[in-house]
Design a protein around this nucleic acid. Structure first.
Lengths: 211, 211
DNA sequence: CCTTTTATCGAACGTATTTTCCGAATATTA
DNA sequence: TAATATTCGGAAAATACGTTCGATAAAAGG
């Protein structure tokens, strides 16, 4: 809607702000904008920034130096559509959304672990994959979790498994996703004392290296 | 080396700058730093910033408002170690590296596609996964590529397959990773005329939603 | 025990930066 | 054609902000 109404100069101004922020990691001052766009007056720059704000492209923090924020933080990778190997689908020309890979995962205390081995292979988690862990005490049945066995002294050893609380048997089952491997069965009492859920897997990331 | 010599206050200052930049998308002013760390004097803040610069953690642009830059732009998710479901491994307390999920993929013209169906399931690419595509004309045998069939008029339809150039048969084979599906076999001449490699898969990203 | 480094405050100073006001030229619209 | 929005300049006013200086301690090192 209003975003299209931006004038030529305003579009150039907006683009400059975007590129400036990419390189400088901070918004430009009004003077820097003016210098770039060859606008002699800072008041003039202010006018266009006001317009850009009215048109919903930026927001401003009054009285703050460099108080410009982009409304749509266009970080990430554009998602161009869907694809199926079986029946080819169309690829659109406009991004449908931005894949904010990892960015929305960052805020908390999320961390990543590198998966070794094929023990979760049937969940399509491969050797070398990164699993992103969101720390939390509790989890639901079927969640893939990092379970830690508490030990004397140092930090315990951790394991990546699917979590199942089997109420009828009054025990907890930690199930690998590999039919060649056996689950770990722990009586409820022992679980409460010796084990702890460290967090659950919220995302998986795999880099495809050159062969 | 010198980065370790940072004082407690300087570490807190550094951490605040990092978190401020994450939320505000710009560096803080000296006064904002002081307010946060309960330092009453801006000169005092300046002193510690000078120390941080001397110790190589930040760089400063004199006389510029918010003229602070992080030397190591620690975006991303900390990788805390390895984990194997089979034989539990230790989780270290210090991050081994930062998982720059997607960030090093952004610069070029990379884009993402959402995978539909199970046609690449044996390569552990699942329904709903994001595949990150790096555009390129050529590829090597075995690469997972987006192949496009050129058509009259509009943009062609795309398919996700493993690419094999079979020189002995003078043909190209597009192989799905699902034994229930048949490969697409294309004679070399037809390939050159009607097909094109759009790009190759460089990464895979999967979000694990709540059950 | 003395010296050096580090940490702290407060205040003053000068520059950086935004904001506001006035005026004018140009285009757009009614 | 009159009214209105847009685009520009210049300059003053008001903050915001970084920098510098003097003084005081506590901690560290020898």
């Amino acid at each position: 809607m209003s975003s299209d109404q931006a004038t030529d100069i305003q579009k150039r101004m907006y683009n400059f702000i975007v590129s400036y922020m990419k390189t400088e990691k901070m918004p430009p001052t009004n003077r820097e904008i003016g210098r770039e766009l060859q606008i002699a007056s800072t008041g003039h720059v202010d006018y266009h920034l006001t317009m850009l704000e009215k048109k919903g492209l930026i927001s401003r923090q009054p009285k703050k130096s460099r108080g410009i924020k982009l409304i749509e933080t266009i970080t990430g990778i554009p998602v161009m559509g869907s694809i199926a190997a079986g029946q080819p689908l169309e690829i659109s020309n406009d991004p449908e959304e931005m894949l904010d890979v990892g960015r929305e995962l960052e805020p908390d205390n999320t961390y990543a672990l590198i998966v070794k081995g094929r023990s979760m292979i049937e969940d399509h988690i491969c050797d070398g994959d990164y699993v992103v862990i969101k720390p939390q005490d509790t989890c639901n049945n079927g969640d893939i979790v990092v379970a830690v066995r508490l030990q004397e002294g140092m930090s315990g050893s951790a394991t990546l498994k699917r979590f199942f609380q089997e109420k009828d048997h009054d025990r907890v089952r930690l199930q690998p996703a590999n039919s060649e491997l056996e689950p770990i069965i722990i009586p409820k009492s022992e679980w409460d004392e010796e084990w702890k859920v460290q967090g659950k897997v919220v995302a998986i990331f795999r880099q495809c290296h050159a062969a």
